Simulated assay, not measured.
Amino acid sequence: MLNPQWLRSFAAVAELGGFTRAANQLGLTQAAVSQHVQHLEAELGPLLIRRGRQLELMPSGVALLAYCGEIEQAHKRLQLQLADTTFDSGEVSLVTPGSVGLALYPLLLDLQQAHPGLVIRHRFAPDPETLAAVLDKRYELGLVTLRPDDARLAAEPFAEEPLELVVPAGEEVDGWSDLERLGFIDHPDGRAMATRLLSRHFAGSPGVSALPLRGFSNQISLILAPVARGLGFTVIPRHAREAFADQHAIRVIECATPVVDTLWLVHRAQWPLSSRATWVLKQIRERLMSKDALARP
């Protein structure tokens, strides 16, 4: 590794065309600058041709001056990264559950479109994968449905997400027998979600396992497709229901005792969030809250 001070002295000599001018600019003695260049030439070979008071760079000197420029640019980039003063450029990485992810992703793209310097990296994942991605430093931010018990992670409430009982449009649900008639469209979290919601709304019911199974999908954006075709009902988070394209083909049944999940924002506890991550979180939280407020009856 070449001594940075030697490189600074050489670059000043090459750019200013003399040892005296370089010494004055750097606040060093001429002897010190000359010694720095001699050290470099001892390692790299001749760099300058001295013709009286005029200097000419040899090919090796031209290459070294270009190298000095690359180091200076790299130093400036590092200072900008460490200063972290820009909010609208750089990468923002976020892992979320599929449901809220369907609502957030268009908002993230809106921000990227308005601020082309932003790079959005988003992934759908269940809680265990999200926690692993944040802990392994592959993603800066994550949203999970259960607050983690890990001292390495900071967690704070981000948003609330109610569970909804969704049936085909035109259907009525007055009792458990209506659900038996419709049948259940399952998904990876379907039985757990349905149990939590239906056990409150239909106290004393036999439980979800007693319902006829009419279908299954592991794609969050496709779960409501069979419901829209009249093939059954399901229980799904509100954000996933709101993202479904054909809202006229489905109906939400109001439940007397709602089940509302808290989504938790997680990141590495010992690391401060980047300024762009802080700014993006503020933007999407405000837009998501506004969107939810408009959706309420």
Rank of each mutant, 00 (worst) to 15 (best):
L7E: 06
A12G: 15
A12M: 15
E15S: 15
G18A: 09
F19I: 12
R21T: 14
R21F: 04
A22G: 05
L26Y: 06
T29R: 14
T29W: 06
A31G: 06
S34N: 14
S34I: 06
H36L: 03
V37Q: 07
H39S: 08
R51G: 07
R51K: 13
Q54T: 10
L55S: 08
M58T: 15
L64N: 09
A66S: 14
Y67P: 00
Q73G: 00
Q79K: 11
G90M: 01
E91L: 10
G98R: 02
S99N: 05
L102F: 04
L104D: 06
P106G: 13
L108W: 08
Q113I: 00
Q113A: 12
A114E: 12
A114M: 08
I120T: 07
H122E: 07
P126N: 09
P126L: 08
D136M: 13
Y139V: 04
T145A: 03
D150I: 02
A155Y: 09
E161G: 01
P162S: 07
P162D: 02
L165Y: 04
A169F: 04
E171W: 05
S177L: 14
R181C: 09
D186W: 02
P188A: 03
M193W: 08
M193A: 12
A194T: 09
L213V: 15
F216V: 08
N218K: 15
I223W: 00
I223D: 03
P226Y: 01
L231K: 07
V235D: 03
R238M: 00
R241H: 13
H248L: 05
R251E: 10
I253D: 10
C255S: 10
T262S: 13
L263G: 00
W264S: 10
W271S: 09
P272R: 11
Q283Y: 02
I284H: 06
I284R: 05
R287P: 03
M289S: 05
S290N: 11
S290Q: 13
